[in-house]
Structure formats: C-alpha cells, structure tokens
C-alpha cells in the first residue's frame, strides 16, 4: 500500500571470504588422507628443514617446506585441522547448549532462577580462562574429550551472559505481554516468541566461540596438554616451530597464519550470519 519491501541485500564479501576459507580448511581436514601430499608423521632426515616452494632448495611435493625432522608442514597443517575442527564444533556446541539454555531461563523467568544463575556466572568468570583450562585438563587428563569438556565448561558463561541480556530485553516487549493476554503458557512464549529473536545472537556467538575454541586448543597443545603428541595439532606445530625459528621460520609462521585466518574467519562469519538471520537487519 504505502511502502514496498526493502530490496534484499547482496551477500557481503566478508561472508564470502570468511566462509570460503572455513570451507576450504574444513574440506581439507575432512579429506586429509586424500589431499595431504605426504604422510604427516613420516620423518626423513634427508629432507629436514626444506624451505617453502618459492625459495631455493625447495623440493617439489613439499609446498610449505618441512620441519626439523623432515616432516611435510602442509600435510601436518591439514591433519592438524581435523583436531582443531572437532574441538571447535564439539566444544562450542556444548558450551552453547548449556549457556544459551541457562541464559534464556535466567532472562525470561527472572526472580530466584536469575539470581542463582547470574551468581554462578559471576563466580565462574572470576577465574582466568586459560589457567582454568590448563587446570581442568591437568585434572581430567590429556586427550581430545578432556579438551572439549574443558573448553565447554569454561565458556558456557559467555553464552549465558549475552543471551540472558537479550532475553530480558525481548521479554519486556509488548508482543510478549500480548501473547500472555492471548493465553499462551510461559514456556511456550519463551520458546516460540522469545527464542527466535535471540537466535541471531546465538549463531554469532557460536561462530565466535568456535574461533576461541581453536585458540584454546592451540594453547593447550602448545603447553603440551592437549592430544597425544603424535597427532599433529596447530598448537603443537607452533610450539615446535618456536624452537627452530632461526633455522626454519616457516614452521612457526605458516601455522600461525592458518590459526589467525581461521579464528578471524569464524568471528567474521558469525557476524555476517547474524545479519542474515535477523529479519530487521536483513
């Protein structure tokens, strides 16, 4: 009648770039045995510290060079991606489920539920997260599942806080009151009316959290607390690269670049997804 529909905005380049990198890294990790040019564990002292392909002395088939034991860096990064992604997905989904549920309850019902949950979150967040993680893994023992549990146990509070605040804001809106007048039950309103409005934030946080999980996993590997040392991990490679920085800088620099690109992509991807999920911003 008096206004048309807003034209749908085109997919932003940052969604493409971030999503493209993540997809590439994810596919490489999934199909690692097929795409990795070498065996990531094969040592060959004849091939130690080969430089990346554009430098003199490079060997074909070892695109990013080798480490001090002659293992192919690119293959190790690709296989390291497997652990990084498993941890990223499992830990952030666990943290998201726990944190968002509690945040939703806390923000929507208020009262004593809110007081208890908020108190727990405050106490929880008083611990420095990395120290907390190291402590937890030390207690739980090293291994993939302890790393995942540790990250989820630490980071659910991030979801809880943000979702609580968003839920509180939404619960004050008139449409919630309207639904109550119409006769909807409290839980029904929370799930059907409020939840869809906080989903964009949950999605953005989830993606951000995946990036954070990748970093925490790398830090734990770096201090040798993560997975068994045989399997390549990004943090483990960085730790080794640090020792040979003067002889073979690439062993440090490439995993760092991979890590940073992945973490940035996760956060950018989350932001871009949020705007796509939000009917008002879209």
């Amino acid at each position: 009648m008096d206004e048309g529909r807003a034209p749908r905005r085109r997919v932003s380049p940052r969604l493409w770039l971030a999503g493209g990198w993540l997809l590439l890294a994810l596919l490489a990790a999934i199909f690692a045995p097929l795409v990795a040019p070498q065996d990531p564990l094969a040592q060959d002292l004849m091939l130690e510290r080969l430089p990346p392909f554009w430098m003199s002395g490079a060997e074909p088939g070892y695109w990013l060079g080798t480490d001090s034991l002659g293992r192919d860096l690119l293959s190790r990064l690709i296989f390291g991606g497997r652990i990084a992604f498993v941890v990223a997905f499992a830990a952030s989904i666990a943290a998201c489920l726990v944190g968002s549920t509690l945040g939703l309850i806390s923000g929507y019902f208020g009262g004593w539920a809110d007081r208890v949950i908020s108190r727990v979150v405050d106490v929880w967040m008083a611990f420095p997260p990395v120290l907390f993680a190291i402590l937890l893994v030390a207690v739980l023992g090293t291994g993939l599942s302890s790393v995942i549990i540790a990250i989820a146990v630490i980071d659910w509070t991030r979801f809880c806080r943000v979702i609580r605040a968003e839920t509180m804001g939404q619960s004050r809106m008139d449409y919630v009151e309207n639904a109550r007048i119409a006769g909807y039950g409290r839980i029904g309103i929370m799930l059907r009316e409020v939840l869809p409005n906080v989903v964009p934030s949950i999605v953005a946080l989830l993606s951000l959290e995946m990036g954070i999980a990748v970093i925490v996993e790398a830090i734990l590997s770096f201090v040798n607390l993560s997975i068994s040392t045989d399997d390549p991990t990004w943090g483990g490679i960085i730790a080794e690269g640090r020792l040979s920085i003067h002889q073979a800088w690439w062993v440090l620099v490439f995993p760092l670049i991979t890590l940073i690109l992945t973490v940035l992509s996760f956060s950018q991807f989350g932001e871009a997804l949020k705007t796509r999920f939000d009917p008002v911003l879209r």
Partner: peptide, 17 residues
C-alpha cells in the same frame, strides 16, 4: 473473552515472525 489494542504497534508485534 478479551483482547488488547496496544499503544505502540511496532513492539506489539514479534519482529522475527
């Protein structure tokens, strides 16, 4: 038996539905 016609027609509708 009742219904409300509210003051602010924006916040009275769920933005995501």
């Amino acid at each position: 038996r009742t219904a409300l016609i509210p003051q602010d027609p924006l916040t009275a509708l769920n933005p995501s539905r």
